[in-house]
Design a protein around this nucleic acid. Structure first.
Lengths: 154, 154
DNA sequence: TTAAATGCAAATTATTTGCAGAAGC
DNA sequence: GCTTCTGCAAATAATTTGCATTTAA
């Protein structure tokens, strides 16, 4: 985890009067030491690798704090559990393309989408706060060769 | 429900060898006689108003069929239950703007978004299948007057 | 006639919560 | 010392499923 992220998190905690505990430290460290998306259960496993005393309840109680801090983003990919994305710290405007062949999620950024959505919001009489773009797509590689290099990584 | 929708649904059912039952008729009628978004529980109530014998289990078993047919769209608004949107039949490319002040969902269409997403997908080496755009925003009306005409309708 | 569909109630599963003890400040 | 935080285990709530019965084709 970068010192920048660490600083922002602990400043947020302090501003809210939240205490620093060893369990929260482990959860935070785990949450921001990867660029992968993860579930609450995944995060529990990652945090426990750092500190065995972390419980499931504490993970579920800490996740909303990280989301409120603005450093972690909760995402619904339409599956049965929520996913969390730690990459908004470094890429605040990224979007997701989900490959229906290999289930891989590709992150991308595009200034035009952002501009366009701002215009649309204004036109409708709103000020945009958060934007989500999700593209479900199929691999061109898979289409032509019948196999996809990414397919192994679900 | 328009005869066009009715025709498409029953053709889909027939093509899959699915039977026509009074309960399914009631659920389908309820599902496409509104332009509002609804939950499974909402749909149960609406279908029961037409046919008291409709059970919760049948609603839950029928919903995926309607989604697979392409006429109904399942949506995650990040709340604890799924929402269903029957408006894709008439507006296959619409998107959603969610007002954080009044929780109202505004549907809009924009060809530029669609074009842009096609370009982005191609550039990344994918063929887009489905696209979701969601804008979370705040009422300009609410910002300036402190109240919002839509606020009453949650 | 026979395979599919139904209602009921029990099962499932991610997430939340009450509580008594532990720990930060 | 007082309040917040924690782990545990039980509770919750949307959705799914097994089964005996009904019904469409």
């Amino acid at each position: 985890m970068s010192p920048r992220v660490s600083k922002r998190i602990y400043e947020y905690f302090e501003s809210k009067g939240l205490r620093k505990t060893s369990q929260r430290d482990a959860i935070i460290e785990a949450a921001f030491s990867t660029t992968e998306h993860y579930t609450a259960e995944d995060l529990l496993a990652m945090a426990r690798a750092l500190d065995k005393s972390v419980s499931r309840a504490t993970v579920y109680r800490t996740l909303p704090l990280l989301v409120e801090s603005g450093l972690l983003r909760e995402m619904d990919f339409g599956r049965d559990h929520k996913f969390y994305d730690p990459n908004y710290v470094d890429h605040p405007n990224h979007n997701h393309l989900i490959c229906l062949d290999c289930a891989k999620i590709v992150e991308f950024e595009d200034v035009h989408i952002d501009t366009l959505e701002n215009c649309i919001s204004k036109r409708l009489g709103f000020s945009p706060v958060g934007k989500t773009v999700r593209i479900e797509a199929k691999c061109d590689v898979f289409q032509s060769t019948g196999a996809c290099a990414r397919r192994k990584s679900a």
